[in-house]
Computed example of a mutant assay.
Amino acid sequence: MTQDNETTHFGFQTVKTAEKAGMVREVFDSVAPRYDLMNDLMSGGVHRLWKDAFVDWLDPRPGRDYLDVAGGTADIAFRILNRANRHMSVGTRPANVTVSDINYEMLSVGRNRALDRGLVEGLSWVVGDAEHLPLPDRSMDVYTIAFGLRNVTNIDNAIADAYRVLRPGGKMMILEFSRVVIPLFDQLYDTYSFKVLPLMGRYIAHDEEAYRYLAESIRRFPPQDELAQRMAAKGFRQVRYRNLSGGIAAMHTGWRL
């Protein structure tokens, strides 16, 4: 069967596999200018705490090469550089962060934010598909992806490509919306996701369908244990995860040994 005849999901829709990446690109091209504002409003600022916890667990250090995939607005990249630079000493090579995103518009937002902060060293920017990264084998020490894995066409292919670009001893870390584990709270979260988020998208980001897709894509993403198993199936070892805010989000980590 050719890819033209294969199907996948785009939120709750069934679409041709070959078309999904373009559809996701359109969503993020549309919301890029208001992406960070919407994140703050949607989560009440909690996404910042999740990202801080993610980088706390990562514990960045100088002298390492980091790859942040689907990292267009550079929220994670800035945190990595800031944390790594705290450990700098004489003769130590600074950390380098390559920010990769399939959406040029999202990368433009990130580059502009970096310039506003005076950050010109230690950052590079690459337009690339998470399933086929334009990077050499075994070229990175750490691979991070925050709130981007659920948007790829084939999650297993993206995990496999993460394994490919990591050096032996390298680490993959994922931060993603996940499965709520607190009884009754999941019902409240569903109501918020499917009733409130699309309205916020309509009036603030001027794209209701983009945020309807967001809610649907979260529900289609594999739960915590399944994602851990899929990481292990692609070669990662010592795979673990931690829930955040009762499972609204979760962090996964695994090593290429």
Rank of each mutant, 00 (worst) to 15 (best):
M23N: 04
A95N: 06
N154P: 04
N157R: 09
L199I: 03
A215R: 06
L197G: 02
A53K: 11
S108Q: 10
A162W: 06
N82Y: 00
A84Y: 02
Y104R: 07
R64H: 07
P33Y: 02
T2K: 13
D207Y: 11
D40M: 13
F177R: 03
R111F: 04
R25A: 04
R48C: 04
M38F: 09
R83G: 07
G71I: 14
R212Y: 06
K234E: 15
T73E: 06
L67S: 07
V126H: 05
V142Q: 01
Y104V: 12
V90D: 10
D75Q: 03
L81K: 01
Y241P: 10
A77D: 14
R61D: 02
N151L: 11
Y213V: 00
E131Y: 04
D141Q: 09
D4M: 03
F10W: 13
D161I: 03
M23P: 01
Y241E: 14
E105M: 01
A77C: 14
G235F: 02
R179L: 03
R230C: 08
G169Y: 07
P136S: 15
F12A: 11
K234A: 14
L166I: 13
F194Q: 04
T92A: 14
L166M: 05
T8W: 00
L107E: 00
A210T: 04
E176D: 15
E131T: 12
V126Y: 05
L135D: 13
Y66D: 08
T144S: 13
A205L: 00
P136Y: 03
Q224S: 08
E208V: 12
P168C: 03
I248V: 14
V55I: 11
V142W: 00
L81I: 04
R202D: 09
A146Y: 05
A114M: 01
L227I: 06
G128D: 07
S245G: 09
I159K: 04
D68V: 07
P134N: 09
L135R: 10
Y143A: 12
V165A: 13
D40L: 05
V126R: 13
D65N: 08
A32D: 03
P223D: 05
L123S: 06
Y163S: 06
W255E: 12
K195R: 12
V109M: 09
A32I: 00
V27P: 02
D40F: 05
D52S: 13
P168D: 08
A74R: 05
G72W: 05
Y213C: 04
G169T: 10
K20A: 01
E19W: 00
A249Y: 14
V181R: 15
M23S: 14
E6C: 15
P223C: 01
L227N: 10
V127A: 11
S124Q: 12
L257I: 13
K234D: 14
D116E: 05
A95R: 06
T191I: 02
N85C: 01
M172V: 15
W125V: 11
S100A: 13
G201N: 11
A32G: 01
N85V: 01
R138W: 01
S124T: 12
D68Y: 09
L37K: 01
I102L: 15
S100F: 00
R202H: 12
G72T: 11
R242T: 11
L133S: 05
L119F: 06
A74P: 05
A158H: 02
V99E: 08
R164Y: 11
G169S: 07
P222K: 10
D207R: 09
V181E: 15
D52G: 01
L81M: 07
